[in-house]
Design a protein around this nucleic acid. Sequence first.
DNA 1: TTTAGGG
DNA 2: CCCTAAA
Length: 692
Amino acid sequence: MVSKKRLYYGGFDGFRAPVVPKAPRSLRRNSHKKSSEGSEICPFELLAAVAGKLLQESESSASSTGPEGKEQISIPKDGVKQELLDVKLKPLRLEYLDQGCCAESGFVHEHSDPELKIEPLLTDLLQSDNDSGLEHASTVTTSDILKEVGTNVKLEASNGKHGVDGTLRHGELCDVNMDNRAELHTEAVEKQSEDLTAVKTCSFRDTVKSSVSVLNKSYSSVHVPFYSDPVPSACFLKHKGNVKIGIRDDDENSFSCNHHSTKMRAFRLQSRAGYRRIRKILTAKYWKAAPKLKDYELSNPTSGGVNPFDHNRKSMYMRKSCQAEAASKRRKLLHHSSKCDYVQEASSESISNLQERSASGDKKRSPAASKRARGVTSSVINHKGSFQSKDGHVKLSIKSFKVPELYVEMPETSTVGSLKRTIMEAVTAILGGELHVGVLLQGKKVRDDNRTLQQTGISLNSDTLGFMLEPSLPQASQFLVQEELPLLLPCDTHQSPARGPATPIMDLGISNSLGDPPPATSLDNQVEMNLESKPLPDEVSTEEIVVDSKALVPIPAMNVEALSIVPLNYKQSKRSELSQRRTRRPFSVSEVEALVEAVETLGTGRWRDVKIRAFDDANHRTYVDLKDKWKTLVHTASISPQQRRGEPVPQDLLDRVLAAHAFWSEHQSKQHGKHESERVGTPVKVCLELES
DNA sequence: TTTAGGG
DNA sequence: CCCTAAA
């Protein structure tokens, strides 16, 4: 964090050229840490991936034959030499590390269904899994390298008890890069011919580097404990790290890259960055992408009836963490190769058992009674898929994933829109974390990942097969909430509604930056799986996934004022669905002073620098805010004191504002030699006299 | 991502 | 504060 030290302060001695030269943006960027880095996992990507895998069977081969074939990974079956892998992987790794983007590997897919045999030491992982009760016999960190259409990856854990021998098939590349923080777990059940079909568990964890290292035998760096607790417990998902999801893009012959790293700040609801990003995603991009999605939906004859929430577009926001483009491509991908309609929607929230409690009202505005919604919020993701069994293959159709419970609490003055948002965020939070997929057969978890579908009986009892999303919620999970508690902090208390032992832990400590996932707790996410033993038509099948999970959703202590003052008109209503206006935070005098000081030194065209200099630790003040504030200050200073509102700003500060404004206006916020020579050193008093 | 302005 | 065109 950059201290607010003032390199120079001209004060009344006059303004001087910026003490801090305006370095090229690139340099400045580097010089100033971007603490707020992080990303969240897009739950839907995961779901999609899972679904895709489930449906992969027949389509996988097809998709692998496309023009993108060159990108396919070729993993020789049976014992590929590590050296070979290393060689092949290097380019990819470099790309990942250096560019942090999806790599377009030059691997050539070999149609022989190559397999990669990896025997990493998964002890830690496995143990963690076991301890946590998760059904992950093994965890395999993979990158898209391992995920390729038609490519089978054979993973074997050396851990005697938990060896895993699974087959991975991916119809799409799904690269997850999570900066050692996020972890994704997906399990897909597939049956492949006679070959042993197994429950495979993939754990995408750690950075790609780690993923690669896995391939390079450096598996040790990949182990990550799973804190997941199958038992419903309230915790907060942590959305940190970088998550990148690459999808093969037929058109571009490359993988689209969903890059949520540096630019994509962590999902901090209360953080400005988070807000902004979310807003952006939810608004423009979302809407832009919507049409396509819609088309797909409509194209699916069965979707209409199956998805009762088609009309509810806002549900789509659950995908907020995903970039529209990537999502779009993803959809395209699915549309093209898997015939899997990738529709995700969240149903409108149904809140039951509302309990009203008296609450202190906003001192300024209308009283705020908090409304505690204790009920079920269900989000629905519509997935279309099919299940079919033929020639030894088991196809599954996930009908729905349900989110059992969501507990929300918010002021009764909150708008419906905010409520919707809240729920949506909660759901997203739940899904945004590391997810695992557990397999349930007849209500019981299938813990042995090594067993084949056949052995497990899944192929026979598909009717009772179920999947459940298991958010990996480390108890220790914490999200950094710096100061921006507004959204994170539950109104008064964050009640954990009859929640299990695990209560969401809000570790509001660190600041800066990193992604703060929305507080959410996810518990057992039960997934209702619908299996049909009947081959489905080749057409797009519909699959509905209802995510049902219990979660404690700390509702942001939204400024009641903000909520209450919002008219419930259409516009607002519409807006509410898209985004939440930040709570108003008037600048304090001290802030104004800091701003003035910084501007006096830096000028009026370097708001980013001003921010860094004077508000670096105020995450809620963006450079745009500072710029706006300056604008208002200039205006304020130019009007009569009687016309001013809000906390009065000392006249001297306003004078300085005018002086600085005048000075820098002339300098055009830049260092112009001639003017500078004239101005530099000119006492502010003089400036004031001259300018005002 | 920043800047610059309008809303 | 928000939204965005430009850069």
